[in-house]
Design a protein around this nucleic acid. Structure first.
Lengths: 110, 110
DNA sequence: TGTGATATATAAGAATCCTATATGTAAGGG
DNA sequence: CCCTTACATATAGGATTCTTATATATCACA
């Protein structure tokens, strides 16, 4: 698993990305991120929830309380139009970072 | 240029990488990083100097005051053996992050 | 009854970046 | 001779985003 100093800033991209495939609640997002990256990228819920509030305030996602069949209440988030628009430039920025680090350090050949 | 939220944690790798080609002082490191990444990755000196102190305390680099021919005093840093050893796992970790984000979001196809 | 999975929430602290500011030397133009 | 730009290091104060620890509550299963 990747250390906190290095994965800083990835939560935003990770959340937007998993939400791209459909609405999800926080607990499930954490599992998807971990599963889809085969355990390489992992977030504690204590990191995810505050991030979800911030992203909702920015208007990128919107959460609605729902009650599942088993009676559990959970907050289901979905991408807003603004959030979808945010994804492309965010991906581009990350791609540029990769390119820059590669030029500096040949990180891909490690 | 890449925003601060995304490039967090890259300074360490950037510094170790530019020092791999030979000793440098802080001001010159900043220029190298910017030049080698064609302006994509940029650090202010106010961010670099404290990072250099931290890395020296960890034993990854060592700085020596020298007086250049023009009379300017500057602190020349070079990689220690421990710093060299640190580079490989650090690169590997970054490469893993790239792979993980790619699996999540297809960042390279942005 | 108790344990583990589900589900959300907050608090306190650490780390790393930012802008702004300070200090001082050297080189070059007006 | 003065002013600006480049060189060179340093610190202060603030923002953001992680961490661990803690709290609450429901459900399924043994």
């Amino acid at each position: 698993m990747i250390g906190p100093g290095i994965k800083r800033g990835t939560a935003e991209l990770a959340i937007l990305s998993v939400l791209e495939d459909g609405p999800l609640h926080g607990y499930e997002m954490a599992r998807r991120i971990e599963r889809q990256t085969k355990g390489t990228l992992r977030f504690t819920l204590a990191a995810l929830y505050p991030m979800l509030y911030r992203m909702e305030q920015r208007g990128w996602i919107r959460g609605n309380w729902e009650t599942a069949g088993n009676g559990r209440r959970r907050r289901c988030y979905r991408l807003t139009r603004a959030g979808k628009k945010e994804l492309s430039p965010l991906r581009r920025e990350w791609a540029e970072l990769f390119r820059a680090l590669h030029q500096l350090t040949k990180v891909a050949h490690a």
